[in-house]
């Protein structure tokens, strides 16, 4: 015979159990639940000064080999109306900053920071033959180094050129959105070092994240929307010439 008292106790226990079912098993940090997050990034072109802090920060945080980049900065120079034919340069990925431009102020010029867009329907994930790359339950595209064969399919598949083959490990590498940091409540290394706030880590599942207010009130674009990648790299102030 179930009394009212027993029934109430049981429902309480069931609610707790269901909570842990929803949370998923791997607990990366004691208070981090993958199901509570859906990560992306906001990039404000109008604030980027091309200092290269993000590139250097990323290289140090993630031990990125020299000459390869998990994030980089491009300088665009658009002569007047020729927006289909911009001049783009990125000396050493912008790691050492940018020399003064030859055209000066006679052309439209601006910096575009780039990194993995952590696509929800990522082409790189779809082509991996061994399940070594995947979208995690919290929306980060990661590589399983133990499974990666180094076949380079994903490097060719990424429409944004965000992947490279590590010259020594011979596995595909890419931006992890500093997964080892964001699961501990920190922001990414590039956001931490960005002096102007041109980069903002965004948790799209967190209703208190300022990203929602920003997306509601600003004209925001993603790169190559025609590829239908479900990109979560949101660009504010993006010029039409950017590819």
């Amino acid at each position: 015979m179930i009394t009212r008292r027993k029934m109430l106790m049981l429902t309480g226990a069931a609610a707790l159990a269901w909570d842990s079912v929803l949370a998923g098993t791997p607990e990366n940090a004691p208070n981090y639940r993958m199901t509570d997050h859906w990560w992306g990034m906001l990039i404000d072109i109008t604030k980027c000064i091309g200092c290269g802090n993000c590139v250097r920060a990323c290289a140090k945080e993630n031990n990125v080999p020299e000459g390869f980049f998990r994030t980089w900065v491009e300088r665009y120079e658009v002569p007047d109306w020729e927006i289909q034919d911009p001049r783009v340069d990125s000396p050493n990925g912008g790691k050492d900053g940018f020399p003064p431009s030859k055209s000066g102020t006679t052309v439209k010029s601006f910096f575009v920071p780039k990194l993995c867009n952590h696509c929800a329907d990522s082409p790189c994930v779809q082509v991996c033959p061994v399940g070594a790359t995947f979208v995690s339950p919290d929306g980060v595209v990661l590589v399983d180094e133990k499974y990666c064969l180094g076949c380079r399919y994903c490097i060719q598949a990424c429409p944004y050129g965000c992947r490279f083959l590590h010259p020594e490990r011979e596995t595909a590498q890419k931006c992890t959105l500093c997964y080892h940091r964001i699961t501990k409540g920190l922001t990414t290394a590039c956001c931490e070092e960005c002096p102007t706030g041109a980069r903002q880590l965004a948790d799209l599942k967190n209703p208190a994240d300022p990203i929602h207010e920003f997306l509601r009130t600003h004209s925001v674009q993603i790169l190559k929307p025609q590829m239908a990648t479900g990109s979560k790299g949101f660009y504010y102030g993006l010029d039409g010439s950017v590819r």
């Binding site: 990366n28 945080e61 995690s136 339950p137 990661l142 399983d144 133990k146 992890t176 997964y179 080892h180």
Partner: peptide
């Protein structure tokens, strides 16, 4: 566990060393 991949790979990535302390 979550899809066609090794779920423990998530733990491997999350276990990497933090280099920037954060402000």
């Amino acid at each position: 566990l979550y899809g066609h991949y090794r779920a423990d790979a998530i733990k491997d990535v999350a276990a990497l060393q933090v280099v920037h302390a954060g402000h």
